[in-house]
Amino acid sequence: MNLASNAKTRTISTWYVDPADEDAMTEAHAPIWRHLIGLLPERDLTTKNVLDFGCNQGGFLRHLYALRPFRKALGVDIATASVEKAESLKGAVPVHYDTDTRLRGWDEQFDVAFTHEVIYLIEDIQRHASDLWRVLKPCGVYYAVTGCHTDNPLWPEWRSLIAGRTNTTVQDRSITDYARAFVDAGFQVSARKLAFDGFVPYQPDGWSPNFAQTLDYYTQTKVVFRLVKP
């Protein structure tokens, strides 16, 4: 089945209007991914099936496999060119890439799922929560990470930047809105601050030229939801 042509699956070419920004995202996110992986209580993934929702060019799964090898993985994203790049870069990592973000045909297949800075772009968060519940095995865990929420003091400015620089549609939700959506889907919901403890580079042309705000974002604002399917 050609998933890209399925009327129920919206696709774009790349997340960013400028494809160069797409390539730079992997390098920018890499330290955050490594920090996130270090927080996981699931130390041994060698027998586990993993899902990366919003995989972009596949960088997170390559980092995860290098640090905590998994049995196999699926990466899904609506950005067709990014998925093609992920496929070309995967090397020996046992991962399949696709554009069907409804995850049809993957019921109860995954032990652990991840998404990084994607849920704020999902129009129907209730449907997404139900889809993730469906594809996780019993006792499966979904880690959803975002700093893009209405509790972020930078959100009004960032919302305009994201809308202007990307091919996506931005949604406005609070941390509590996300928690309620996942509770309604049946998940046991807990969360923590990402509390990134590495050095954050100063980028005068980045999302926040105010460096103090940037530091607060990575240490205080960015949230990791841990969502467990009983």
Results as ranks from 00 to 15, higher is better:
Tyr217Ala: 02
Val118Lys: 03
Glu123Ser: 15
Asp177Trp: 03
Lys8His: 07
Leu121Val: 07
Ala73Ser: 06
Leu40Asp: 08
Tyr143Pro: 01
Gly206Thr: 08
Ser160Asn: 06
His63Ser: 13
Glu22Tyr: 10
Arg165Gln: 06
Asp23Tyr: 01
Phe225Thr: 13
Ala81Pro: 13
Ile119Val: 11
Pro94Arg: 04
Ala79Asn: 10
Glu42Gly: 11
Arg192Gly: 13
Lys85Asn: 14
Lys8Pro: 02
Arg180Gln: 06
Tyr16Ile: 05
Asp197Glu: 02
Asn56Phe: 09
Tyr178Lys: 08
His149Gln: 00
Asp184Ala: 13
Asp151Glu: 11
Arg134Gly: 05
Arg43Ile: 15
Val112Asn: 04
Leu215Thr: 00
Gly140Ala: 00
Trp133Asn: 09
Lys229Gly: 07
Gly38Gln: 05
Leu45Ser: 14
Ala81His: 11
Lys193Val: 15
Asn210Leu: 14
Ala4Lys: 04
Leu89Met: 03
Gln171Arg: 13
Asn56Gln: 06
Ile32Trp: 07
Ser5Gln: 15
Glu108Tyr: 05
Pro204Asp: 02
Leu61Arg: 00
Val145His: 07
His63Leu: 09
Gly105Ala: 06
Thr9Tyr: 01
Glu123Pro: 03
Gln188Met: 15
Asn2Ile: 03
Trp133Lys: 00
Val200Gln: 09
Val135Trp: 01
Asp23Cys: 03
Leu64Phe: 09
Trp15Ile: 08
Tyr178Ser: 03
Leu40Trp: 09
Arg43Asp: 11
